[in-house]
């Protein structure tokens, strides 16, 4: 691995405030991204650091490479069409970077 690849201060792929789409996929296995946000759009609340990938670790693999973890905030009305509550109500979900893609502002 080159020095660049192991550099501790890589730029974050997503910044707080970025709009992101969650992958609408159904891979087999124990996945951490709940079904209720798959295919939905949210906003990065914060970056949480890098962690061994639990979706690999759980099956006896090394969990490498580490994955960046984000908290993504969703509007409840975007998740549940029949949601009863204020428009300001939100749900924050921990999502690994490989589930996220950028959207234009």
């Amino acid at each position: 691995m080159s020095a660049t690849e192991t550099a501790p201060f890589q730029p974050l792929a997503f910044q707080p405030g970025d709009r992101v789409a969650i992958a609408r996929v159904n891979p087999p296995g124990h996945r951490r991204t709940p079904f209720y946000v798959r295919g939905k759009i949210g906003v990065i609340e914060r970056a949480c650091g890098e962690f061994l990938n639990p979706e690999e670790l759980g099956y006896g693999f090394t969990g490498q490479p580490r994955r960046r973890l984000y908290r993504v905030r969703f509007r409840q009305h975007d998740i549940w069409p029949a949601y009863r509550g204020s428009t300001g109500d939100t749900i924050d979900v921990d999502i690994y970077e490989h589930w996220l893609s950028h959207l234009p502002d």
Binding site: R32, T33, P34, C48, F51, P54, L69, Q76, G85, S86, D89, T90, I91, D92, V93, D94, I95, Y96
Partner: peptide
Amino acid sequence: VRVHDSLAD
């Protein structure tokens, strides 16, 4: 109301 779903680390 802000719900936090604790799914990872």
